[in-house]
Structure formats: structure tokens, C-alpha cells
């Protein structure tokens, strides 16, 4: 009878160790990937890895809850000998993570209860939960439900709006016009469309005529620049509304045109 139980325990432990080892290697490879291949790691690949790990976790918990598995909780691990010396066998079996079986590590590794602080906190919370009346609990659940549904609605609505916006942006968004760019650049760079006296039908202009300052209010003192009133080539087409005092500027300076 006892032999059979022992056999069962051994078998279960082997099984568990194997699963845990599988899990360990896949977690290690995942960490490897994240650390070394983060440049070309794609999302589907990452999710595949994650799915593998999650599958292994499920397998492990299945093994643990199998009815043939003995109840591990009922077994006791007893530290018989603590030693500050380095234990080669232990180091090897833990891949160098634990090298001594000493008093400062053992309480951490063989812990079966929560830390005292966490334990008192848990107790408090359990006590509080136990004291709640059924109606009160029901009320709170309903209130939380309401809040969660509300947030869910908000998120859904935002997603819908966002999707509509992004799909419409993909199709029709036109933020700038090439024609306008060219128009503006030509205007600022070469004065296209800005030159005074250019008639709408695009008559070429000949510069060289000066307008007397009195035609511009506030033009006294010379601080306001005086644009030359360029006139269209046939002289009789000059705008007659502006009284011009024309003098030949050509003779004033040596540079001609």
C-alpha cells in the first residue's frame, strides 16, 4: 500500500519536473528573443511564443489537479542540515542559482505560508468580506457592474469614432495643394503675381518710372518705400486714375536697366 503511494508520488513528481523544465526552457527562449532579436521580432512570432508558454502552464496545472496525483500539500519538506559551505550538488541541480543550503536562503525557498505582513492583511480582508451581508454584497456587485458597463460603452464608442475617422482619413485627406505651393513659392521667390502694374491679362511690364511720394499718404519722410509704377508698354493704356508725376529715372543713375 505504502509502496504504491510512493511509486505514484515519484511518477507525479517526475511528471511535474518535466513540465516545469519545459516551461523554463520556453520562458528562457522568449527572454532570449526579447533581449537579442528585438529589432526584427514581429508581433505574430511573439504571440506564438506566448501561446506556447500559456499551453505549458495549462498542462502543468492539469497534471497537478489530476486525481492520480497525490496531494502535495500534505507532504512536508524538512530541512535537516543547514550549512554555510558551498554544496556542489545543489549548485549543479539548480544551474548555479543556489550554491549553499544556508540559513539565509532556506526560509525563502521552503516557505509555505505567506509573509507575516501579507498574512495579516489577507486575514483582515477575509474578515471584512465575511462580515458583509448578502444584500450589501449584491448591491456592491451591481454598482461595479454598472460602472464597468459604462466604461465599456465609452471605450466602444471611442473606438467606433476612431475607426470612422481613420478610415475617412485614409481616403480623402488632402492637407496641401501642390498648385498652391508652387504659387506661393513663385510669388515669394520671384514675385510672380505680386509685381505692381501687371495687368490681369499678363502684359509684360517695363520698369523705370517713378511715382512721386505725395501719391502715398504717409509717404513723407521717405520711410515708406516707393514702388515704381511700372506701366504697360502702350503708354495710352496707363491707368488714368492715378495722377502720376513721371520723371525719367534712367538719367539719375548709371546702371540703366
Amino acid at each position: 500500500m505504502q509502496q504504491r503511494e510512493e511509486k505514484q508520488l515519484e511518477f507525479a513528481l517526475d511528471n511535474i519536473i518535466q513540465r516545469v523544465n519545459d516551461l523554463k526552457t520556453s520562458i528562457a527562449s522568449m527572454i532570449m528573443k526579447v533581449e537579442n532579436e528585438y529589432e526584427n521580432l514581429n508581433w505574430p512570432n511573439f504571440l506564438d511564443n506566448y501561446a506556447l508558454i500559456s499551453g505549458q502552464l495549462t498542462a502543468l496545472s492539469k497534471v497537478l489537479s489530476h486525481d492520480k496525483c497525490p496531494v502535495l500539500r500534505n507532504l512536508t519538506v524538512l530541512p535537516l542540515l543547514l550549512s554555510p559551505e558551498r554544496d556542489e550538488q545543489l549548485a549543479q541541480s539548480t544551474e548555479g542559482r543556489v550554491t549553499t543550503f544556508a540559513h539565509d536562503l532556506v526560509p525563502d525557498y521552503l516557505r509555505t505560508k505567506l509573509e507575516p505582513m501579507a498574512e495579516t492583511k489577507m486575514l483582515q480582508i477575509e474578515h471584512k468580506a465575511g462580515n458583509l451581508t448578502y444584500e450589501n454584497a449584491q448591491k456592491q456587485v451591481a454598482a461595479y457592474q454598472k460602472v464597468v458597463v459604462h466604461v465599456w460603452d465609452i471605450v466602444n464608442k471611442a473606438r467606433e469614432e476612431w475607426e470612422v475617422e481613420s478610415s475617412s482619413r485614409g481616403n480623402t485627406q488632402q492637407n496641401s495643394s501642390v498648385a498652391d505651393t508652387h504659387l506661393l513659392v513663385a510669388a515669394v521667390g520671384m514675385g510672380k503675381g505680386l509685381k505692381m502694374g501687371t495687368s490681369p491679362n499678363g502684359n509684360p511690364t517695363s520698369g523705370g518710372m517713378m511715382v512721386a511720394p505725395q501719391n502715398r499718404p504717409g509717404g513723407s519722410g521717405g520711410s515708406v518705400p516707393i514702388p515704381p509704377n511700372t506701366q504697360s508698354v502702350p503708354m495710352n493704356k496707363a491707368p488714368s486714375t492715378i495722377k502720376t508725376n513721371i520723371k525719367s529715372a534712367n538719367q539719375i543713375h548709371p546702371y540703366g536697366r
Binding site: D180, L183, L184, G193, L194, V211, P217, V224
Partner: peptide, 24 residues
């Protein structure tokens, strides 16, 4: 925004018209 100067009788900054529907 680039504005064309208005006619000769206005001060700079008045009576100007934008030359396009875009900003440079």
C-alpha cells in the same frame, strides 16, 4: 500667409489680399 499689397493708396498692412487659400 502671403498677402499681395493692396492698391497704392493704402498703407502697408491695410487693404491687402491673400494670394492663395494656403499657408506657405
Amino acid at each position: 500667409k502671403i498677402f499681395k499689397m493692396g492698391n497704392m493708396n493704402t498703407k502697408p498692412g491695410e487693404g491687402v489680399e491673400p494670394i492663395s487659400q494656403s499657408y506657405l
